[in-house]
């Protein structure tokens, strides 16, 4: 009886600690641009895209470039291996996942969040302006 519980517990602890270790390895922290620069490892930055700066898509290299402003107001040029995401212009916030490489941020993923009024608001409100 006791041995069964002991073996079970050891196996469970081993499995869980193994997965927690892997979890810590594969988690991607939220960071600011300056933190991302010092950390150097893969992080995600929440911010918005800089509409004043140029954004471009290089079709031959399949590279999308834009400038990200984080919540503290710092800027960094972002290079993303892929096309411009849908709704990029409409997004009120952008989350990029990747790492800082030299002067730019190399993103492997971009998530865009659209304003909530775009999600569910009514176009039938009388315009006040």
């Amino acid at each position: 009886m006791k041995a069964r519980y002991l073996i079970g517990a050891i196996a469970l602890i081993a499995a869980l600690s193994g997965s927690v270790y892997l979890l810590s390895q594969s988690q991607v922290q939220y960071a600011t641009i300056s933190e991302a620069r010092t950390l150097g490892r893969k992080v995600q930055i929440k911010g918005r895209w800089d509409a004043a700066a140029e954004s471009s898509y290089d079709q031959n290299r399949n590279l999308f470039r834009f400038v990200l402003i984080d919540d503290q107001g710092n800027r960094i040029p972002v290079e993303y291996q892929g096309a411009k995401p849908n709704n990029f212009e409409l997004a009120h916030s952008v989350v990029v996942r990747g790492r800082v490489e030299g002067n730019h941020f190399h993103a492997t993923e971009i998530l865009t969040k659209c304003p909530s009024k775009y999600e569910g608001s009514s176009p039938m409100t009388p315009r006040t302006e």
Partner: peptide, 28 residues
């Protein structure tokens, strides 16, 4: 469950917000 809930757990225990990479699930 652990991977999916991790962002919430991290926030509850006061660590910085984080997301989990698919490789976590795949490798395990």
């Amino acid at each position: 469950l652990l991977g999916t809930s991790y962002p919430i757990v991290a926030e509850l225990i006061g660590k910085s917000k984080a997301a989990i990479e698919p490789q976590f699930y795949n490798e395990l």
